[in-house]
């Protein structure tokens, strides 16, 4: 059984693969189209759930395109983070909407004209920027193992640039604190009373 499996897989493996750089170009383009279309559909649907997950789909397509560009880690982590964030965001979008989040015609656009202008301008600026900037050419070929790019990312984060982490951690802490302060309607003092012993109010520590 094992032997047959072995032989078969080696036969299949030795069949030559098509030129993948072309395929990659096709994949990136197709995924880009998917990302744009799903992103545009966000504004067309009448359900917060659909809007949220269309946006997630758009991000997934972007992540896949990044993977196709040989940046495995960045691509997959975009998918990971965006699925997670959209799942949570969906909850908030549904919860905080001014009307029924699923069954009524709705518009995801606010002050459409200005938004359109802003979006158009930023698109033009970015595109022009991309085209005009004199991008550096890399001296060597990109590493054949996409894992190597992940490694360099880690190296960049951890090696000489302690700064990133040292800046990010207080920011994250501030985010947690600020977020909880804002979100937590009934903090410690409200639950436990001014002496924090839970005696002045019912409910107490559980």
């Amino acid at each position: 059984m094992s032997l047959a499996f072995n032989e078969l897989s080696s036969v299949v493996l030795e069949t030559p693969l098509p030129d993948l750089s072309v395929l990659r170009g096709v994949a990136v383009t197709a995924l880009g189209v998917v990302a744009v279309v799903t992103g545009a559909l966000v504004f067309r649907v009448d359900s917060m759930a659909r809007a949220t997950y269309l946006l997630a789909a758009s991000f997934v397509a972007v992540g896949a395109a990044v993977v196709a560009l040989h940046l495995d880690y960045v691509g997959v982590v975009v998918v990971l983070m965006m699925l997670m964030e959209m799942a949570v965001m969906g909850v908030f979008m549904v919860m905080l909407m001014g009307m029924n989040p699923a069954l009524m015609p709705m518009s995801m656009v606010h002050s459409g004209r200005r938004a359109l202008a802003a979006a158009g301008t930023s698109f033009v600026v970015l595109t022009v920027g991309i085209l005009l900037v004199d991008w550096p050419t890399r001296p060597d070929a990109p590493p054949s193992d996409p894992g190597a790019t992940t490694y360099s990312l880690g190296d960049a984060l951890m090696g000489d640039h302690m700064l990133v982490m040292m800046v990010v951690s207080p920011v994250m802490l501030a985010t947690i604190v600020a977020g909880v302060v804002l979100a937590q309607a009934h903090g410690r003092y409200e639950r436990l009373g001014d002496d924090l012993r839970g005696t002045s109010r019912q409910g107490g520590r559980r």
Binding site: Y53, D72, Y73, V76, V77, L83, M84
Partner: peptide, 22 residues
């Protein structure tokens, strides 16, 4: 044989959130 297979697994397990909620 993904170079970031562990992250991939992680991404799929987050996908489960989405599926259950949907």
């Amino acid at each position: 044989d993904a170079s970031v297979g562990v992250v991939w697994f992680n991404a799929v397990d987050v996908l489960v959130w989405v599926l259950v909620w949907l």
